[in-house]
Amino acid sequence: MKTLNVNGQPVEVDAQDSTPLLWVLREHLGLTGTKYGCGIAQCGSCTVHLDGVAVRSCVMPLAAVSETTKVTTIEGLSEDGSHPVQQAWAELDVPQCGYCQPGMIMAVSGMLNASPDADDAQIDSQITNICRCGTFQRVREGVHLAKEVAKKSKGETA
């Protein structure tokens, strides 16, 4: 048994140390919003945050996640789908099939955690998720809109 901190809650996990975090989340904790796409950190469908930093959970063994690391999945990004990235995605109808979008949203929100003013060059270098439907144009627009949404809500709460 190992204790993890997932979406702000301590949870007990009974899995082998070598099990990737992706499968711990999906199969042991029932958090199926995080998707399996490739298993080799190529597509980004499995992206989650570890202490606010976007990582690809399909190649992250359980043993590498400490009890104090804050794991955030798409289910825990916001309580009600109101994170600025989720708001922007809803406003622009970004998803098509949607399967890659939890990973895309976690990658984008991770980028914006570190770079709230990320520009197109940063988007190009940091958002390397694969979307076979080809939603990239709206993803890019969505990043820029999310920046605005975040600034606006920050202004409102300030």
Binding site: T32, L77, Q86, A90, D93, G98
Partner: peptide
Amino acid sequence: VKRLDTADKLTGKLVYGADISLPGMLC
């Protein structure tokens, strides 16, 4: 008009085939 199927795609709630879970299920 906006798509009818977007909201659950933004929160991880949408259940795809890969996410199906049934009582007693094996994989």
